[in-house]
């Protein structure tokens, strides 16, 4: 294990312990396998009062060796119909963008990744992203268009996907 790697491991273990002993509402997260702390599985409930209410969503988080200097990547393992989720499941959200200023000046440095963020903060940010898509940088153009112009159809599609994920 390199020095960085050891730092990352300790930090991830600390976060794992925290999120297990005192889990935030509607979130279950931890390593997919106890022997590899750099790959996590996160399950969370869809936020209430949104089309995602009642659904369970599963995403994998992959941490770099120099975590927490660099952010993890997050990808839904099932298909998601959301303006800020790429068709391959990858989540596009400012908190997962590398620390520092946005070269395109869209995001404030405070919204982007920094070592004081955490897995828990990422998941809470993603839950609020489900509730309020970011119209400025759509990752799924079709979903963004539908969200903007055909809201009812967007909600129906979201619900149908949720039902399918739960085998209903």
């Amino acid at each position: 294990m390199s020095r960085n790697n050891r730092v990352a491991f300790k930090r991830l273990r600390h976060e794992y312990e925290g999120i297990t002993a005192d889990p935030p509402d509607g979130i279950v997260a931890g390593p997919a396998d106890e022997d590899d702390y750099f790959n996590w599985i996160a399950l969370f409930n869809g936020p209430e009062g949104t089309p995602f209410e009642g659904g369970v969503f599963e995403a994998e988080l992959k941490f770099p060796d120099d975590y927490p200097l660099k952010p993890p990547t997050m990808r839904f393992v099932h298909k998601m119909w959301h303006p800020n989720v790429y068709p391959d499941g990858k989540v596009c959200i400012s908190i997962l963008h590398p620390a520092g200023d946005d070269p395109n000046h869209y995001e404030l440095a405070s919204e982007r990744w920094s070592p004081i963020q955490s897995v828990e903060k990422i998941l809470i940010s993603v839950m609020s992203l489900l509730a309020e898509p970011n119209d400025e940088s759509p990752a799924n153009i079709e979903a963004a268009k539908m969200w903007r112009d055909h809201r009812q159809q967007y909600e129906t599609t979201v619900k149908a996907y949720m039902k399918q994920a739960l085998g209903v």
């Binding site: 369970v56 599963e58 099932h78 298909k79 119909w81 068709p87 399918q164 994920a165 739960l166």
Partner: peptide, 8 residues
């Protein structure tokens, strides 16, 4: 969007 793949 492919509708294949296992559900939860």
């Amino acid at each position: 969007l492919d509708k294949s793949g296992p559900d939860l």
